[in-house]
Nucleic acid binder design. Structure first.
Length: 640
RNA sequence: GCCUGGGUAGCUUAGAGGUAAAGCGCGUCCUUGGUAAGGACGAGAGCCCGGGUUCAAAUCCCGGCCUAGGCUCCA
């Protein structure tokens, strides 16, 4: 009898009879492991435990304690949903139903569902779980498989694409239900302890908007009910952190139906935070040798025809007809900055030239995309454009990366880094692109940053490095970015005079440290849950007089603290209520000032963490707050 | 742009064919309070907009706008 040999995670080889499955291998290692096995990872791919092992493969056993187990469980939960759906709506057709990071979805069609229907389906799913049906893997020949799906064009397509070479093909069955599926799955529906359907939405077949619209149902599942409850609780808390909710509560910004969609209005509290953010990067920019410039909000569209944006994005621009000439709100700052560069002649000695501007831009994004501050029609980029000699690229990109890392550290933000390469729709030669990509990658390596390569995700004019943040609901948004551009200098015919007295082409670098103020503000609101550090807090100190008699003394204190954002709570409330409201308003420090303080000429301070101390010197507190603001400290530390 | 929900006072929400309700906030008054919401009274609503059905529409129907979630897109 022939054998196969697989390599275990510790590097040791395991010899098995040909045809042995993942499960057989596990039993070979030990009976305990064998009985705990739920799936395997063969050459990096999660497979069913009943999958026969190929020779020379790497094998990892997945047990019910492993992270992968929950993926397998959710995959089975997707089938349970599908089974419940078909019990209630026999006409429903299934397409694809994978697991995701925190649950599963199933795309279905042939049935009209609304959100109320989900409750009935969920109830039926619980019934199926209670029935504890065995989940079996069944191999059918292609003929029989096509037969089963003679009315389902989507499954037919899967049989002709993903499963094209397979005969027999793999099905999973539980009770009356069957589904074309590679697995892996758990052994019975009863293994699912917690099951819930969460949302419903539309999706496109194969993710292509030219294809049919399908109904996607999202759900999640856990080994136990308790884990599901915890998950639901985390979801609820995440919604509490939503910047749209906090923005409303703290009067940071609003988006009014009358003034238009995706056009945020910043209230004084929000503008205070934005100003601090702006001043912070303006300082960093000046230190790094940038010069500030300013450009208007509208330009002749000639400019974007020149830059190439018009060809690619005219549909997303706000256009104006002015005296029979076409103007447009600016969707980008770079053409303006390139034009500024072009206003004089430059020597190689002058480069790099570095411009920056908090530039407001307008992009008519798809309507369904607009959402709070994360996707807007108007937003402000802390935009920088550098015009450099080719030999200066690496050093400049490196220095930009240093600034970005410094900023992310100031806010203690988590992020991921993407390196995006040449897209299909692009301008410039192969040679130029290869050069640009290799230089950016070199910097990433040099900085020792973990990154993922996003093939074909670059801008049309050059490759880029993007930093991304996660919002409270787990969605990812681009933040800081560095982009190389070998194309725009050509289009604008930008030159500098070299040592050889000849004209040379500079290279352009686009960079944003925050990305957009809107999006960064969103990230910060959710990151801090509205509890901004003192340097950013719209109101840094609130003084609470115990009675109205103490207001005069409170005003003296406020006058002393005139370098800070201080308010006196003079509404005729009890002290308890004043404290409650100050906490709800997330003010970093409050001072409770009564007759005792007034008589002694002291203050008492209470912070967000309910720490409190009396009999303190105002000058001491003032000095402390000054340092806390100056150093942009994240935590309130006066009372520690 | 696509699909499915939703839009009622400044905010959060209840109401579901017969002329709109609550809490918070706001105003006035009483209370001047020492550590997480004192009391009374009061003002405040074109029930998103436009059409239709009906004796009667916030409520039902159609269209639009805005919004939520996801899909698609994102210089």
């Amino acid at each position: 009898m022939s054998t196969v040999t697989v390599t275990l995670p510790d590097g040791s080889p395991l010899e098995l009879d040909a045809g042995a499955t993942v499960e057989d291998a596990a039993y070979e290692i030990g009976p305990g492991l064998g009985s705990d096995t739920v799936a395997g990872v063969v050459d990096g791919e999660l497979v069913d435990k009943r999958t026969p092992l190929p020779d020379d493969a790497d094998l990892e056993i997945v047990t019910d304690g492993a992270d992968e187990y929950v993926d397998v469980l959710r995959h089975s939960a997707a089938h349970v949903f599908a089974q419940a759906l078909q019990r209630l709506y026999p006409e429903a057709e299934l397409t694809l139903g994978p697991w995701t990071d925190d649950g599963f979805y199933y795309d279905v069609t042939g049935v009209d569902l609304d959100e109320d229907d989900l409750e009935d389906i969920e109830e039926e799913a619980h019934e199926i779980i209670a029935e504890d049906l065995d989940i079996e893997r069944v191999m059918l020949d292609r003929e029989a498989a096509l037969d089963r799906y003679e009315d389902n064009e989507y499954k037919q397509e899967i049989l002709e694409t993903e499963a094209a070479g397979e005969d027999p093909v793999s099905f999973y069955e539980q009770g009356e239900f069957y589904d074309l599926c590679q697995g892996p799955h758990v052994e019975s529906t009863g293994e699912i302890g917690g099951f819930a359907l969460l949302e419903m939405s539309a999706s496109y077949w194969r993710g292509d908007e030219d294809n049919d619209t399908l109904t996607r149902v999202y759900g999640t599942a856990f080994p136990t009910e308790e884990e599901l409850d915890e998950y639901m609780e985390r979801r609820r808390k995440a919604k509490e952190r939503d910047h749209r909710k906090i923005g409303q509560e703290m009067d940071l910004f609003s988006i009014d139906e009358t003034t238009g969609p995706g056009l945020p209005l910043y209230e004084p509290n929000g503008k205070t935070v934005l100003n601090e953010l702006s001043e912070y990067v303006a300082d960093l920019n000046r230190e790094a040798g940038y010069d500030e410039v300013e450009t208007p909000h509208v330009f002749r569209t000639e400019l974007w025809k020149k830059s190439g944006h018009y060809d690619n994005y005219v549909d997303d621009m706000f256009l104006l007809d002015v005296n029979d000439e076409e103007y447009g709100l600016k969707p980008m700052n770079c053409p303006g900055h390139a034009t500024i560069f072009d206003q004089q002649s430059w020597s190689y000695r002058d480069l790099p030239i570095r411009y920056f501007e908090d530039g407001k831009v307008y992009r008519k994004e798809q309507r369904g995309e607009l959402s709070g501050l994360s996707r807007t029609w108007s937003f402000t980029i802390d935009d920088g454009h550098l015009f450099v000699r080719p030999d200066q690229i690496e050093a400049e990109v490196l220095s930009i990366m240093d600034i970005i890392l410094d900023i992310l550290d100031t806010f203690s933000l988590d992020y991921t880094v993407q390196f995006a390469t040449r897209p299909e729709k692009s301008t410039g030669s192969d040679e130029i692109w290869e050069k640009a990509e290799s230089q950016l990658e070199a910097v990433l390596e040099q900085e020792g940053i973990d990154y993922v390569v996003e093939e074909g995700d670059g801008a049309f004019y050059g490759p880029k490095i993007d930093f991304a943040f996660e919002d409270a609901l787990g969605r990812h948004w681009d933040g800081p970015t560095v982009q190389l551009d070998f194309n725009m200098p050509d289009r604008f015919d930008l030159t500098y005079t070299g040592e050889d007295n000849e004209d040379h082409r500079p290279v352009m670098i686009h960079r944003a440290l925050y990305g957009s103020y809107e999006r960064f503000f969103m990230v910060l609101i959710e990151h801090y849950n509205g509890k901004f550090p003192p340097w950013l807090a719209p109101e840094q100190v609130r003084i609470l007089p115990v009675s109205d008699d103490n207001i005069d003394y409170c005003e003296e204190i406020a006058a002393e603290l005139d370098d800070f954002r201080v308010e006196i709570e003079d509404r005729s409330w009890t002290v308890g209520k004043k404290i409650q409201v100050a906490h709800d308003d997330k003010v970093p420090y409050m001072m409770i000032i009564g007759d005792d303080e007034e008589a002694a000429g002291t203050i008492s301070v209470r912070d967000r963490k309910e720490r409190e101390e009396k009999d303190l010197e105002l000058a001491d507190f003032e000095q402390h707050l000054e340092r806390e603001v100056e150093q942009k400290r994240t935590a309130v530390t006066y009372l520690v």
